[in-house]
Design a protein around this nucleic acid. Structure first.
Lengths: 330, 330
DNA sequence: ATGAAAGCGCTAACAT
DNA sequence: ATGTTAGCGCTTTCAT
């Protein structure tokens, strides 16, 4: 068994409350006794028990970060920012990945509640947030806010997709496909909406045969490209819901010996790290991932540490088009 | 405040020990009472307090996964496997990333000890493992074992680098550079050793001017390439300590209009997901990441749940060369 | 089958 | 400045 404050107290012939005070830097201990306590604690190899402390303070100094999929580098980057920020403020982050499984997501939330995390940052994909509200702890959603009682940090996906599509049109591409993921995600419908708006604003209404759905993987992107091809409807450009998908499309277009960007234009989304690599050079819509992660963490921690002073915030960042080599010059 | 078992007990006019028994599926509660308890717990919105439980059971049902850098996809993939495996067995994983900072690493270990994690999986980069041994909990190192009291799962890096270098030689490259990371890591020295062995076995001893060190990033790889170039010593191939580095080298070689693989051969390490993409097609040395993660988690959890039945294990996996387009056919 | 009581390691009033 | 006491919410003997 490990050393407790009582062990230290016994060894020194004092009470454990003095030890607690000393160890926590609280007033009410004479300098010399404090020194002795610290010294003894050190040499006895004392390690405070966070569970015991948390039980009485009602704080676990832990937050949860829940996202659908850590195979997606986008979430990993945000996770990293969250983790560093939280860590710098003394909090530990537990990261959860639920493979787009709603049941699993609920289980994780429940488990985090049992662990008594002090707050949650979540990219959820369901509609219903009641279970988040019931938790009674601060929650920052990485989705558009559905309830004023939850905070949210988001990027304007409609705008992003609109701008990307607009760019493709201005580049002179005529038949622009949209290749996305699950229909039931907010992200999909927002980006699709932006795409549809730009299309009907500049060209014509959406041709449903030019819309394809799958997953957030390059395999899925490749598959969608092939499906699109199979329909026989011509297309000379594609807006992809994210860079992974775009990569798969890129691959297939190269296989078909299409000249990029001359004969085929391609825009991804998220500016994942490989998008900027020399061999990729993918035009993409960038989101301020770093900012999102840092801000989400700070917001959540503020909500935790001074709930009153922090106003519930709902931030919406703007995405930014990064033009590289997969779209032809305007 | 949230609902406790005492609240449930009070409401039902019974003791909290019965509630505890019922909730934990332990014997000693009549079927009907159990049913009533479960029902009441549900409708009162009871959520067990893991900290309180952990305090008495001396189990947190949590493990820690500590690696130098989550910007490295290699670690992310392993983390993912660890996380899923642990989760399936009812354990939560806390992931820590310490930016190759040894002080930070120690801090994290200490913090995890305070949280009373039940075990640790760690890719450590120091020499001294005494602080890990002192913890008194199971530890699985993702490095070669330094102490018989720690378990370890590792891949033979010397062999891997040897095989890669051998391949480059068999392809007919004459002047093979080694581009790596920090000198002080075990990984570096192992892979360098494999490189050196193959070189002196087949060609000649290592030319120190063809060895360059930096970090695990493509920027660093590019920088090293330029440095190598600046020395004026000719080189027509490079073995990189990982794929990120190789990417940077790839970039620069393309910039210099070198024909790959005709004029310049390149081998990476780790088979990160982008290595296999059509636009990359990097020859690389693959490690069984999935296997490592899953095995590490299982081993650790076995060590935790039945310490006696599990023998301390030291596994060494074999790496596998994946030949793609950055090395010319033999 | 149920209840009573002790205690996990700690913090925080409240005494002294 | 130090000690005493009472929990935090839970599991676990030990009685009944």
């Amino acid at each position: 068994m490990s050393v407790t404050i009582k062990d230290i107290a016994r060894k020194l012939g004092i009470t454990h409350s003095s030890v607690s005070r000393a160890l926590n830097g609280k007033p009410g201990v004479s300098p010399e006794l404090r020194r002795k306590i610290l010294e003894t604690a050190r040499q006895m190899g004392y390690t405070p028990n966070a569970m015991a402390r948390g039980l009485v303070t009602r704080q676990s100094m832990t937050i949860a970060f829940i996202v659908p999929d850590f195979a997606n580098p986008f979430f990993v980057e945000i996770a990293h920012a969250v983790n560093s920020t939280a860590s710098a403020r003394g909090f530990t982050t537990i990261m959860c990945d639920n493979q787009w499984d709603h049941e699993e997501e609920l289980k994780q939330i429940r488990l985090m509640a049992e662990k008594r995390v002090d707050g949650i940052i979540i990219k959820s994909f369901g509609e219903d947030d009641s279970y988040l509200l019931d938790l009674g702890i601060p929650v920052v959603k990485l989705n558009p806010a559905t309830s004023p009682d939850l905070s949210s940090i988001d990027v304007d996906n409609v705008l992003g997709a609109y701008l990307a599509t607009e760019h493709l049109i201005q580049c002179g591409y005529q038949n622009i496909a949209f290749i996305g993921s699950h229909t039931d995600t907010q992200t999909f419908s927002d980006r699709f909406q932006g795409y549809a708006r730009a299309l009907s604003h500049y060209l014509r209404t959406v041709d449903a045969r030019l819309v394809c759905q799958g997953e957030y993987t390059h395999e899925s992107g490749a598959r969608c490209y092939d499906q699109l091809l199979a329909t026989g409807v011509p297309f000379d450009a594609a807006l992809c819901e994210n860079d992974m998908i775009a990569l798969g499309v890129y691959d297939r277009a190269m296989r078909d010996k299409k000249k990029i960007p001359e004969e085929f234009g391609l825009i991804g989304y998220d500016d994942m790290f490989f998008a900027g690599l020399p061999m990729t050079q993918l035009t993409t819509m960038a989101q301020p991932k770093q900012k999102i992660g840092v801000k989400a963490a700070h917001l959540l921690l503020d909500l935790i540490t001074h709930p009153d002073k922090t106003k519930q915030r709902h931030l919406v960042y703007k995405p930014e088009l990064i033009v590289r080599k997969t779209t032809r010059p305007i």
